[in-house]
Each structure stands twice: as C-alpha cells, then as structure tokens.
Design a protein around this nucleic acid. Structure first.
Lengths: 149, 149
DNA sequence: CAAAATTAAATGTAATTACATTAAATACAA
DNA sequence: TTGTATTTAATGTAATTACATTTAATTTTG
C-alpha cells in the first residue's frame, strides 16, 4: 500500500514532502513491529539497542557517552536505560578506572544469552521482508544514506 | 554518511537487517529535524499532523477516530492532542450531531493562519534535500512503500 | 599550583505516552 | 422492546521521555 492510501492523502505538494512523510511513517511502522517482537522479552527497543551495542564490543566495556553515540535514538536517557539493564542483571556497571567521572558498562553472560535467543526471533522475522530483492535493499540503503546527506 | 559510520557499526548480518535499522534511524533523524522546525511555534509533530489533516478536510469536521486513521503516528493519544489544540484556540471541538458518542473537530481560522506560516518554513527547509534528484525521490518512495508490503 | 571551565553521568521535574478502564451512546439480537 | 454487545471518546495510572540542573571528576588557564 502506497503512503497516499496508507494516510488517505492524495495530494502531497512535492515528491520531497512525500518522501519526508514516508520516511517518518515507515520508521514508526518498523519501530512498532520491533517493539511487538521484543515485548515478550520485557525489553524496549532502546534497551535492545544498548545490549547489541555492548555485544559488539566483544567483552570490552563502554562508557555511557560512547553508548549514546552509537544509539539509533540518541535522545534516549541512556543513564536510566542502563539502570533498567542492570536491574535485570543483563549488564554490569562499574567505575571507569582511568576516568572516575565515567562509568564502564559491560554486557553479562545472561545478556548475551538473551541476545542469542533474540537473534533467532529476528532471523525468523526478517523473512517477512523476503519480497524485497537484494538489489532493492541495497538501493533503499543507498537512498536513505543519501537522503540524510 | 552511510548508516555504518553513522552508528559506528561495520557488520550488519544482512542487507535486510541494515535496511531495517536504516529506516528506523532515518525516520528518527527526520522526525527530530521536524520537531526542531516546529519548536518555535510551540507545536509538536503530532499536533502539526492533526492540524494538517484537518486542513485537508476543507472546512468539513472530522471525528477523533477519523483523525487517528490518518495520523503518521497512530499510537498517539489523539483525544488529549486535540485538547492541546483546543487550548491554543487552533481548533474547535463540538458534539457530532448525528452520533452523540463522536466528537467533531474543526480547524479554526487561527489554525489555518498558523499552517500557512509553517508552509513557508517547510518550503524553505525542503531545499535541504535538493541533493536528491526527482528520480531518487520517486524511487525512495516506491521502495519504502514496497518495504511495508 | 589554584581557580575556572569543561566533561560525564545522575537526578528532579513536568510533560508525554502507553495501556487499561470507564462512561455514554448506538447498534444489534432475542 | 429490552437486554447485550459494540463503538467512540475521555480518563486514570504508571512508565517513559525531554529538558534543565546537580554532582563529581578532570582539564585548562592564568
């Protein structure tokens, strides 16, 4: 379904205006799907994002600031996000040895195990997009990157 | 800047995974830009969205449910969004004559005037995307539509 | 070195959002 | 018709988010 019928709007003033609305709408739509996927695991999208960033460190700790720089939604309150992850015993927080203002955050084995479970779920779910060819996906990624400049 | 360097991540498991992240990230990025644009007018994106939907009605009233169906972010609390717009005297809320459960919402001349001001601001801002060709934009819109199925 | 400026994270708060529930009106079915 | 179900919007609430402020540590400057 095209964005016009999706929003029951026929008259975008320009292709630019349409693309802007389309990007925001499709992003919201996709985020919603992800949220639904994560809901059974009591995990928000932002929490999931932080966990995956930490996994990418392969055991190395990261400061809160470094985490924020890699987050998809950088307006999130990373400090309290990490709180939640600590509460759930998925990550460890400890004072950074070389800068006592900073805090080192580390993913725990429990966190890694949860992510592995979720890898499965995600891999299944990604099949939902098998109607897109590899060329389509590459082109879409290019255009989105180009759109942001 | 590509999504990899934007998120400082080099290893997406697949082009699908990358596209999913890219769509969400670009949507957030775009929404953030819009919010900044609207901030001086004390208007949230959702409020702006509702106002524009109402303008599209050309004077005809709309129920809250009909508004929700056309919103970009359908999880918004439309009832309280309309509250805010009524507070600011941009729209009028009145009992729907043929269905007393429903509420008719109408944009006021003050709301229309605000939108006209914002049309100017938006038109200026859209120039920011002049690096995208018309073909690029058309293709992007097609791919996003296709992505959602 | 000491004072001032900057940085990193946490926290207080007001506003917003999500989710469930409620209230009122309408539609439907026996 | 009358009771039940459904629909529409509003509301209560708990959680989340945005934004500013605070606290503590580090860096810079005179």
């Amino acid at each position: 379904m095209g964005i016009e019928s999706e929003l029951q709007q026929s008259n975008f003033v320009s292709e630019e205006a349409k693309a802007i609305v389309n990007v925001i709408f499709t992003g919201n739509w996709m985020a919603y799907q992800q949220q639904e996927l994560l809901k059974p695991y009591d995990l928000s999208m932002q929490q999931y994002n932080v966990l995956r960033i930490l996994r990418g460190q392969n055991g190395k700790p990261m400061t809160v600031l470094a985490i924020i720089e890699r987050m998809m939604d950088r307006t999130s309150n990373a400090s309290r996000l990490v709180d939640k992850l600590v509460e759930k015993k998925w990550v460890l927080r400890r004072e950074c040895p070389n800068d006592r203002r900073a805090v080192d955050v580390l993913i725990l084995p429990e966190g890694l195990a949860l992510l592995e479970q979720l890898d499965e779920v995600q891999n299944q779910w990604v099949n939902r997009f098998s109607h897109m060819s590899q060329d389509d996906l590459v082109k879409l990624n290019e255009l989105l990157d180009h759109f942001r400049n």
